[in-house]
Design a protein around this nucleic acid. Structure first.
Lengths: 113, 113
DNA sequence: TATATAGTTAGCAACATGACTAAGCATGAT
DNA sequence: ATCATGCTTAGTCATGTTGCTAACTATATA
């Protein structure tokens, strides 16, 4: 399972940048224009544009243009694969603990003899 | 909050690579030697070493050397900040939905007049 | 129509990343 | 002591990422 999974890589990569995470947090509040998003970052517009297209390619936001204004909106479900990966990891880890418990139980029973 | 948060960036970056994720999944099962980890990847040892040090720098694994064998072990708690970030995002998103509900309620009441 | 606003495109520079090979250094087995 | 094993270091190379400026397009607004 999860042979290639480029979608997950894209997701993690998109969120590995603090600027992009702050954009995500801002957009979690409410949709915003490109210029609104650029403001707090202190970065130039083309730079912010690039960050936005990384987020959009990863499916984390959608954008639409009305007149000369582009509005960005988050896509909350886009985070689901990440949560799923986390849960899978935890699940494997926990079954490992279970196996360890089994092992300990076995040893204990051995000693009871 | 989360002004810089380089730890989170490091975490996300470390997990953005499929090789590193597969190593994590493998290590969730049980600790392993460097060579054991290299095998399935088809990559050369120095390359795998680099991946391992990225994971170790991110705090996702620890390693220890016994004789000439280095054993790698996952640090499950290292994923906590990621889960926390996800929860924070969701929380902001949900309170936004609440505010939207409030807004809708307000409109509805306006209409009742 | 002229001007400001909002975004876009192109291209550049600096640095980071992920792969490799070649060579080295301990440790364990013969 | 010699050789194989397991890892480590150093150095190279191609590509990707993040920032910039400059110049452009398209839409308001005066």
């Amino acid at each position: 399972m999860t042979k290639h999974d480029p979608k997950l890589s894209q997701l993690f990569h998109a969120l590995a940048d603090p600027t992009r995470r702050s954009i995500m947090t801002r957009l979690a509040e409410t949709p915003a224009r490109v210029t609104d998003l650029a403001g707090p970052t202190g970065l130039r517009l083309p730079t912010v544009m690039r960050h936005l297209s990384v987020l959009e390619d990863a499916g984390l936001i959608t954008t639409s243009k009305d007149g000369r204004i582009r509005t960005c909106t988050i896509v909350p479900e886009a985070l689901d694969p990440m949560q799923t990966w986390l849960d899978e990891q935890r699940s494997i880890w926990e079954s490992r603990l279970d196996r360890f418990d089994d092992y300990v139980m076995k040893i204990m029973k051995e000693r009871e003899k």
